[in-house]
Design a protein around this nucleic acid. Structure first.
Lengths: 128, 128, 128, 128
DNA sequence: GTGGTCTAGACCACC
DNA sequence: GTGGTCTAGACCACA
């Protein structure tokens, strides 16, 4: 099962929230390869947001090779494959690691604590 | 010493980069409490960016209680206050940890590798 | 200079036409690395189409690493870099080579003629 | 013999894949003029897809003059007619050559490599 | 029914 | 001024 939760009004755009949650769900195998995702319109109705917003999120996931679209049938979980070069993966990670660590440090977490929190997060994901 | 490095062309806005790096530097004690920060104009000249951008970054830092402005003298590192409750800190961290881990996992980093990258990032921070 | 020409009503979507022409122009160095592209709104006005359509085209180009966006400043030609793995590049090429060759063969072009046409196309691009 | 291979999950619609492969096979003379094509139902069963999809593909091929339908008997390869003028053929090719080359160049293929890939594709076609 | 494209128009963030 | 997000709603292509 897949239960998307969005919060509006915050600083994280809706389509980003969808991307993040879908990514986690898929990476954890909560939806198996080849399984269909909720339809654009269906999910839009369910979350009470515009279908275009869902479409945008799905487009990004397609571009990252996480899901695939089949005209007239729907979106499906794609087979996992290496898309980006090692260098590009590193580049993309560094783009997000900086702000993330800065935020954590400001909140008072040191390296060890932060690593602990990340481990906890992985455990939480595995369970849910 | 405080060495701000900004990269234009990425998706992180300049004022964000400044905030992130200042926060890290201060939280890590690289600038002591009461120490002066670079002047808005000076830093703007040095980084070759619009002074308004620096001003905005400083404004956010003042608002977050990380630095203080002293009329006519400049900006200084604020006395470290616990602004957030333990509960609030945890909530704030979880807000950013989810998207961060989702992105990393999609890029193909597993828990161990991710922790390795974070350690590397801390080392880089310590050196700069 | 950069002169985008679009035709509406055909089967190739407008945003695709923009992508194709921008790609060619950039690959050929008609716009140098670091140079700004036409603004979303400006180009939309010029081509008499909706700004969102331009934005969509630009988003794809950003994703392919061809251009970069700078919030509040505009879009710029990115430094050329290897984004995709060899395997992924091959996969993406094969996705377009099949229909292309099928169309050419149906039109009566054989291998040799088709290669000739491609060479001619490259020459035409280099000149313009 | 005619060996249709469809791949679901890509962005090319199924009926397009059928059209493309039939066109290539016929243009390359792998099925002689007057030869019968697989029945709509038979092919649908074999490929495990909706018969309507086959019917649509055949309809397009009939409309293009590539195949002919004989009431109650099935579909047959049409007598090769020159449907397009030389000028029209050229125009049609140029319509598809631009986007194709743009995509290839963005993927990092230069003229020589691209020609190599096209040769490889022709070899693959000849074998299948 | 499904996704894909496009428009018109709003509001926000950034420089 | 620039880009970024979101909505409402239309029309087409595909299975």
């Amino acid at each position: 099962m897949l239960n998307i939760q969005i919060t509006t009004g915050g600083k994280i755009p809706i389509y980003r929230q969808i991307i993040d949650q879908m990514r986690s769900s898929i990476a954890l195998g909560k939806i198996a390869v080849g399984e269909p995702l909720p339809s654009v319109r269906g999910l839009a109705t369910e979350l009470v947001i515009n279908p275009n917003t869902i479409a945008k999120a799905y487009a990004v996931l397609v571009n990252d090779g996480v899901i695939e679209s089949q005209q007239g049938r729907g979106y499906f979980v794609a087979k996992r494959r290496e898309i980006f070069t090692k260098r590009e993966r590193q580049r993309r990670l560094e783009e997000v690691i900086g702000p993330f660590v800065a935020e954590a440090v400001t909140l008072g977490f040191d390296q060890q604590q932060l690593i602990g929190e990340i481990k906890k997060h992985f455990q939480r994901l595995a369970k849910s």
